[in-house]
Amino acid sequence: MKILICIKQVPDMESRFKLNDAGTWYSDQDLAWRMNEYDEFAVEQAIQLREQLGEAEVVVLSVGSDRVKETMKKALAMGADRGVHIQDDTSYEKDPFQIASVIAAYAGDQNFDVIFTGMQSQDRGSAQVGVLLAGLLGMPAVTTIVGFEYDDGKATVRRELEGGLKAVVKLASPALFTCQLGLNTPRYPTLPNIMKAKRKELVSLPMADLLKVEALTTTAATQFPEKKGGGMILEGDVGELTEQLVAILKDKTTVLK
């Protein structure tokens, strides 16, 4: 069995973002980078599936500048066997269709049985790449899974719907699954595994060799949202903040006597 995990490196969402010079995306300066949260669940599920089957190869793939290799090493330290890095310093200018197309160009003749992706990225949040990739590879996709079991060539998954409802769906592999938060408990890489990961294969392929399609959407501009909330912001000493907040609650709400 061959398993592919597609991951993305994203900035910490608590960062204070600035725009790049072109005004088309955030500036990549002074940011802390990490694995897209949804993808951590994808990596964990792939490792669990290999542990269950005993034998399987887990390949982790990411698109981006050389910086993303740091995040790929985390996936290798979690247990992926080898990494495929599609090198592109301007991957943020590519649209979901292009990203899915280059992954499909790599994966097309690799015969992956199961592919896991995050359900969306935390920075772009298009929720498109996984489904497009499956379509390009001609395999079925199920999105937003919060439960995964595999038995005898068939996966039984739980799709998260709104309001706490889940749909139980069964399908045969090859298939692609996009992973929702809470699917499992992603492991922390241990120190020995971090050391071991340094020796694992991580090859870089140039984007230009794989990209054969034009973008279908483009970012005209990136901007800060207009602040609508006219809420009050309180800052300062904890003791004073407490007094201020209690006074406001007494004044503005009916719940505090």
Binding site: P11, M13, F17, W25, Y26, Q122, D123, R124, G125, E214, A215, L216, T217, T218, T219, A220, A221, T222, Q223, F224, P225
Partner: peptide, 20 residues
């Protein structure tokens, strides 16, 4: 004529145009 979508947990917005 373009669409506005959130990015980075709504800290940013992208203005996106579609071709075609």
């Amino acid at each position: 004529g373009a669409m506005v979508v959130p990015a980075c947990n709504s800290k940013l917005q992208r203005v996106v145009q579609a071709q075609g």
